[in-house]
Design a protein around this nucleic acid. Sequence first.
DNA 1: ACTATTTGTTTTGTTTAAGCAACATTAAAT
DNA 2: ATTTAATGTTGCTTAAACAAAACAAATAGT
Lengths: 79, 79
Amino acid sequence: MVHNRIALFRTERGLSRKELADLVDVNPQTIGFLERGSYSPSVECALRLAKVFNVSVDALFSLKPFPALSTQLSVQKTP
Amino acid sequence: MVHNRIALFRTERGLSRKELADLVDVNPQTIGFLERGSYSPSVECALRLAKVFNVSVDALFSLKPFPALSTQLSVQKTP
DNA sequence: ACTATTTGTTTTGTTTAAGCAACATTAAAT
DNA sequence: ATTTAATGTTGCTTAAACAAAACAAATAGT
């Protein structure tokens, strides 16, 4: 089982699945299946996805679950 | 088409395909198919491979061909 | 030498999963 | 209510992964 941050990165950039699919050159349904973890992509597809987001494959996919973003946030001090 | 450095990393560490396969928990034949580029692995398999070599997936797989090692070497000066 | 025996790699089916195409559903908005 | 955009589902095709067997090369035995 492999975890990913596709939905997170996509929504952060304000992209629909169709728009992302066009950028990655893959079917919109495939993005859907990937986001809800129905299957894990080929490394080729993973490389293309990472390229679109301009991140490493390792930042996008992981064998261990990604920590929730809320646990990563710290309170920002006003200077 | 996706390129990889599996054979390079494996031989550098003095591993046989069977030994690598055991570490990655995959069939030795699969390593063979991957090394000679017959197919590109799932990102899950790629993550496990990268973990064994202790490198990032991006260091092991690429959409563009990896440069030959000989072109990356510079002459070492004796001090 | 000759040939067993091991070790490493490649080939041949077979099974399972990724990816696609087309259709179905949902949501929002007007 | 009907359009439109976004997401979800179903069935099919192709490719990844496996299992087992074939092949190759080196080593050990007698």
